[in-house]
Write a protein that binds this DNA or RNA. Sequence first.
DNA 1: TTTAAATGATAGTATTACTATCTTATTGGA
DNA 2: TCCAATAAGATAGTAATACTATCATTTAAA
Lengths: 225, 225
Amino acid sequence: MEVQLQIKMNEKLFLRDPEQTELGKKIIQHSIQFIHKIGFESFTFKKLSEDIGTTEAGIYRYFENKHRLLLYIVDWYWSWQEYRVAFYTNNIKEPAVKLKKVIQLLASTVVDDDKTLHVNESMLHQIIIAEGSKAYLTKNVGEDNKEQLFKPYKDLCAVIAGIILECNPKYKYPRSLASTIIEMAHFQNFFMHNLPSLTDFGKTKDELKVVSFLEDVVFSSLRKK
Amino acid sequence: MEVQLQIKMNEKLFLRDPEQTELGKKIIQHSIQFIHKIGFESFTFKKLSEDIGTTEAGIYRYFENKHRLLLYIVDWYWSWQEYRVAFYTNNIKEPAVKLKKVIQLLASTVVDDDKTLHVNESMLHQIIIAEGSKAYLTKNVGEDNKEQLFKPYKDLCAVIAGIILECNPKYKYPRSLASTIIEMAHFQNFFMHNLPSLTDFGKTKDELKVVSFLEDVVFSSLRKK
DNA sequence: TTTAAATGATAGTATTACTATCTTATTGGA
DNA sequence: TCCAATAAGATAGTAATACTATCATTTAAA
């Protein structure tokens, strides 16, 4: 069986839908590689166009500016993670087991599953760790939020908050705990690799320890008192 | 009694010490106001120089580029927070009470205490919430870290990890929990104001609830099992 | 087969992120 | 007090960035 995953993106993210054309797909593919390589600050449409073999104007026909392109990539990532959460927690009865699965999905390195051929999921995961927060840490959050540009993140957060409440219906902070899991799954990974003394995993650099830490925090909080 | 707080900054942060001159102090003061107003992305040395009434070249004599200036401001903030932690937890015997104080210091809005006249601490607090992570979320983290540019953050994290261990010497993740407290004290505040559905405090926008959430997470984790 | 849509090629502009140089204040020490 | 640093001001210049505009050419749908 050959399944192809298609994620429907918010149309406000782009000027021309990159999924619909070869050039569009190339833009996404090469952006991910290029941002991963040089970082979002150094990344420009000029450099990207040279990398792809098109022109700057060509890229501008798809995306207003590089921040919108980042938002596109980030949104794609969170939609994809929500899909993964739905897929891998499906049919699990025990909410605590579901929640463990969620933590594992968010905090461990992704193995590229080839369901979406033009996206390298593992590289994408690393980009989101390092650049993801820049999507919302801007003076434009309010406006962007009105255009629903953070919906995939918020949806994922809501799904996780739901599982948290299944574990303990009386827990008072399901959404904040959910966003804490999401953010820390990424930040602890970033710290572990780049500022190791901010974590307890600097020696081994073992992602499974981030998972253990998060499980410990989460299930201590959810234990009925 | 009049006390003036002076923080010794890493000399690699600047080309000329801004604490030593009027212009230098103006640069810091106006940077904080200006970044707060227009955001770090739109902030340029040109605009800053016009705001101050000096020239672009004048700013470049103090700071290599705007990222170094951000690092200067961020480092100052974390050093100042470490000082506050030391000051306000001094003489507290009970480690749990100390830790509560720490959470409160990090997660509540700062009241400008006028100990440092050229820094508006409340505005600074808000800048660090929105822009602080950008100090390390760069391709240059490794290099910057070698130059000790994240020392104040790491020192504060170590202090908090120490208090965590006082609360429960067997706790396995003191550093990760400390960096989680620090990051979430800021992120939950940012989310509450800008992406409220990622938190449980969107309705009231009450910072004390962030404090309660963090206390709940932290003390659940530290309870001996 | 025609025609609209997408792409390529090229040019141009305002702003950013610097570096360089020269002159004028200021200040602190012999 | 005067000399010599040192800091600041004024101005100029450059390469890169972040776009917008135009026109020709290719491609694909009706």
